[in-house]
Design a protein around this nucleic acid. Structure first.
Lengths: 328, 328
DNA sequence: CTAGGTGCAAATAATTTGCAGAGGC
DNA sequence: GCCTCTGCAAATTATTTGCACCTAG
């Protein structure tokens, strides 16, 4: 929470004055977890033994929304609720109609489909609202409300790390296998190097994951926050399957390039989508690493083609790198 | 629209009196296309030179919602809108923040993902709201508002038929190919028969599609309403691909069973999800047809296994039908 | 005749606004 | 001192309710 203050300072719009009341409201608001109504906030402030007008609460909430600290959400109850957005990515909601609690989740898969639909209708989407209304587990079965309190930031970081780790594992597997089956010694060394790097990076990620777990002992048992099918087995799993006996050195490089490119794109795109948070950082760092690997693979691919062309004397079948290999 | 009156009669809750005012409101409401606010409806009724109280409008709208004629939707504007639900399946919305119009769509793919998320959280979903807010094509580019007026019922029926036709085509292709490669004459005849049936059904569906097109000359050019990736190439496309040279008669039957089962499940499940409409009927009829085919294939599979077992004398390798074939 | 249905006006409920005074810079 | 923030009360907006009257069955 130390950097939160700095963050807040940076958000204060020009020409606004520091005011004890507003600071109080903002602080009380940020300390809360769920989705507050304006009224709840009034009660909270009154509880902190301060007289405050409803109007001020409303004005401050609007100010926070404009400043990007808060988001206004509508669960169809006839009034708005507010959630803070500091290190808290935009998300979808499960809303229990019995206990009125709401649970958050993200789904990269659903987001992709939404983008496809919008694009099919030439609609420029700015923001999507997805709410699943129904009955939560606790309300349907007996009464095990199951220790709440998952700060979304931690869950997001946890799931981002899990995806990164799964991808790293499948990448390691892929490169190790590719190294084993590559005949050209130089190419083999490249794959070995990449496998080595993946292994090292994997270690870093796993360490980070363990550190994360220490911030909340129950973190692992909390429900999934970020749904993303693609990476369940790692983004290199499909590539690894393609590495069968019939594959030559060049094909192997090409498959690697495709995997790295897909992986880099996913992590970059997804990382950019989020506001500042540990999860975002994980995604972007990962994207950078993949970009470096990609560059290395492409360089090697070109070199290999060059050597093959030279070796096959002038006027071999003059195979060109397939489409895609030449784009950076 | 003829059966709409009967439908309405059937919906009148017990103990309600026929009243000219209410009938008027209901009729005016059902004649509209989009998502009306209570106020718009008041203006419409006043325009039809009748004095009416806002309270009556509100009461009647609530009555319609209770009777299942209307749905209350919230686009976060601070007031509700109402859409009729007669032959108009629940759907998702694209909402233009510039012109405030909204466009409807369905996505089987998104619905599946929603179910998965809910189930992963042991949440019992009752209803989902998905809204994509942004800017529509007309508002972003110049001004080609592109002849509106797609009655959703027609669009739904059109897309249901398209999916059914694609599936039928891929089924025909699958059975024709299977017949060609089946050695056992009796099995071959079964596939030929199924291919024949698919072809006939395909004809029926195509005729129905042409008839539908006559109800709205622009129907084909209207945007997609029902998104469903799985059936873009037909639900048998994957099966047809598996029919390579290495496949024996039994495998072919088994692949067919899997395709029919998947197809039957999809159409049944999806058909049941919707309220009365042409699209619903198409889905359910189709599901029935697939069920019959499925039964035929299973019968044939069992017979084949029996004959093989008999032929291989006592104590062949005693292959059992693989899991799945014995469940009806 | 009697349970609904309807209009009118008043009540709610959430949120916004006008205005005069308080307070930070 | 100026300009913003704040409280209070009044205004606004969408919707609901109380109540007396009306009308179909």
């Amino acid at each position: 929470m130390d950097s939160a203050a700095t963050f807040l300072d940076s958000l204060r719009p020009a020409g606004s004055k520091r005011s004890s009341k507003r600071d109080l409201i903002v602080n009380v608001f940020l300390r809360q977890e769920g989705h507050l109504t304006a009224d709840t906030l009034v009660e909270l402030i009154r509880g902190a033994d301060e007289r405050i007008s409803r109007a001020t609460i409303y004005r401050t909430l609007q100010w926070m929304v404009d400043a990007g600290i808060a988001r206004k959400v509508d669960f169809g109850e006839g009034r708005f609720r507010f959630e803070h957005s500091y290190r808290h990515p935009r998300h979808f909601h499960l809303i229990c109609r019995t206990c009125n609690r709401s649970f958050e989740f993200l789904s990269s898969d659903i987001e992709s489909l939404i983008e496809e639909v919008a694009s099919a209708r030439s609609f420029a989407p700015r923001q999507s609202v997805l709410q699943i209304h129904g009955t939560c587990d606790a309300c349907r079965t007996g009464r095990p409300p199951l220790a709440e309190g998952g700060a979304t930031e931690l869950l997001f970081a946890r799931d981002a790390l899990r995806i990164a780790i799964a991808t790293e594992r499948s990448g390691l597997d892929f490169y190790a296998r590719a190294a084993r089956m590559t005949k050209d010694p130089r190419g083999r060394r490249v794959f070995e190097k990449l496998a080595e790097e993946e292994k090292e990076h994997l270690g870093t990620l796993e360490k980070r994951y363990r550190e994360l777990l220490q911030q909340d002992p129950q973190l692992e048992s909390r429900p999934t926050f970020l749904f993303f099918k693609g990476a369940a087995n790692g983004l290199f799993a499909a590539g690894a399957e393609q590495l069968t006996k019939g594959v030559n050195d060049r094909d192997a490089l090409m498959i690697g390039i495709k995997c790295e490119r897909g992986s880099h794109r996913f992590f970059k795109r997804y990382g950019e989508k989020f506001e500042d948070s540990e999860g975002k950082r994980i995604f972007l760092e990962f994207a950078d690493e993949e970009r470096a690997h990609l560059a290395l693979l492409i360089r090697e691919y070109r070199a290999l083609v060059q050597r093959q062309r030279a070796r096959s004397g002038r006027r071999g079948k003059r195979q060109r790198p397939r489409a895609g290999a030449s784009r950076a």
